[in-house]
Amino acid sequence: MPAPHRNVADVEAKESKLSFETALGKLETIVESMESGDVPLAELLAKFEEGSKLLKICEARLKDAELKIEQLKRLKDGKPALEKFETARDE
């Protein structure tokens, strides 16, 4: 069954490209719909699974982020390049 596999990959590729805001917004919508209490268990599980995926995306974004400070420079040929931005000592 090559077609479904490709679809899954497509979906995941799309999900991993979701912005943090979009993923978080979707997650919050799902959570809200889960909270109503009268959702059938099977549906709840499906929502939970989807929510977990989004949560993973959000958490990955938070975890992977690190502070990096750079400065844009113009090279001689006019092309932009990045170099480390020197900051004063942090007291």
């Binding site: 938070l62 982020a65 690190e66 502070l67 990096k68 400070i69 750079e70 400065q71 844009l72 420079k73 990045l82 931005f85 900051t87 004063a88 942090d90």
Partner: peptide, 27 residues
């Protein structure tokens, strides 16, 4: 301005508040 106090203040506060991400000073 890369030499101004604004850039230093900005970066210092992001660091102090444990913000994470990439900052690029556009001089």
């Amino acid at each position: 301005s890369p030499t101004g106090a604004a850039a230093q203040d900005f970066v210092r506060i992001l660091k102090r508040r444990d913000w994470r991400g990439r900052v690029i000073i556009l001089p």
